[in-house]
């Protein structure tokens, strides 16, 4: 197991309220695997990812519990100094906006150099230069010898995001956390980028945590998926199992509410209501106020986790309805 997160809790302490942004999240990641974390804005998926690297938004954010075992070592117990040797080298991140991920006053060569120099010792000057060009070639940047002297503003959005990707993989990390890396990219550029990530993963065996709001990206990229709602993982499982037998009403609703390209949709299923506002007092199942199956118990008590759904040991969901075996999806 490359990474095992158990009952992670990150709260945001504001003057007005305590926001349980990440409220007891557990998941794991194997080598070479892609895990999708799907959720809407405010579901806590980004804060969860930042917490893994102890980069939760300060000063409001604080990790209040849980553990994140990276090769058996708890990341949450490490000092900031130790974390610095892990961030970027063992676990790196690709953020949504390449515009702000790159420093506009340095050439991309400089920024990659820095990644190499802080990441690995023992590379001679010429060696770094060669490594920079190599990694740029790996992320499909044409004419990398010339591009190293380019400034970020001279590159298009897609190219910038590939440079960010190059920085992320420069130290051959074990895990790359990609937080909505393609939302600012155009469709055809997004396709190029996703293909690139897949290929890099095939060649390096890096574990990828893909944070997204888009089930399409999950369908295309991920082996397993965890669905987050209001700080909790409500359903988790292998991607096909989830798509074929979504077991939590929220997952079902999300999948049904996305229009399809492949077929004509007469009328989309629409989820009523709004996601809970941050800081709102939450008891019982977080989705109950919007759920068409919810009853009194759902509103009072958080449901237990049901395992082995669709006859797949890894498929789990938190929903009272699954108590009744007839609601449990089965593979046939």
């Amino acid at each position: 197991m490359l990474l095992e997160v158990k009952d992670l809790r990150t709260y945001l302490f504001t003057k007005r309220a305590t926001v349980k942004a990440v409220d007891g999240v557990s998941f794991y990641l194997r080598r070479g695997e892609t895990l999708g974390i799907v959720g809407e804005s405010g579901s806590g998926k980004s804060i969860m990812a930042l917490s893994l690297l102890q980069m939760e938004p300060k000063p409001a954010g604080r990790i209040v519990g849980g553990e994140a075992l990276f090769r058996g070592d708890d990341l949450l117990r490490k000092s900031q100094g130790e974390m610095r040797t892990i961030r970027g080298r063992r676990i790196s991140m690709i953020l949504q906006d390449p515009q702000t991920s790159l420093n506009p006053v340095f050439t991309i060569g400089n920024q990659l150099n820095e990644a190499f120099v802080t990441g690995k010792q023992g590379l001679a000057r010429g060696g770094v230069r060669k490594a920079v060009v190599d990694v740029l070639r790996k992320v499909n940047i044409a004419d990398p010898e010339r591009r190293v002297t380019a400034f970020p503003h001279q590159l298009s959005g897609g190219m910038k995001q590939r440079v960010v990707g190059a920085i992320a993989i420069s130290c051959s990390p074990d895990i790359v956390i990609a937080d909505e890396p393609t939302t600012s990219l155009d469709l055809t550029i997004q396709a190029q980028y996703l293909r690139l990530i897949k290929r890099l993963q095939d060649t390096t065996g890096v574990g990828v945590i893909f944070i997204t709001h888009d089930f399409g990206i999950v369908a295309k990229m991920c082996d397993r998926v965890a669905v987050m709602y209001a700080g909790k993982i409500v359903e988790h499982g292998p991607v096909r199992s989830i798509f074929n037998h979504p077991s939590h009403p929220y997952t079902q609703a999300l999948i049904n509410s996305v229009p399809k390209l492949e077929e004509r949709t007469e009328r989309l299923y629409s989820i009523p209501g709004q996601p809970p506002a941050p800081g709102q007092e939450l008891v019982g199942c977080r989705f109950a106020p919007r759920c068409e199956f919810a009853d009194e118990r759902c509103r009072q008590e958080y449901p237990p986790q049901f395992e082995g759904l669709s006859r797949h040991s890894e498929h789990t969901a938190d929903c009272w309805r699954l108590e009744d075996p007839t609601w449990r999806p089965s593979r046939h």
Binding site: S156, I217, R240
Partner: peptide, 25 residues
């Protein structure tokens, strides 16, 4: 056709025609 190929699938089993558009607009 390239836009269709680049669009994200609605299901992991959807196989799309692979059209690789090189370069950018």
């Amino acid at each position: 056709k390239a836009l269709f190929a680049a669009a994200l699938p609605g299901h992991p089993d959807v196989e799309r025609e692979e059209i690789v558009l090189e370069g950018e607009v």
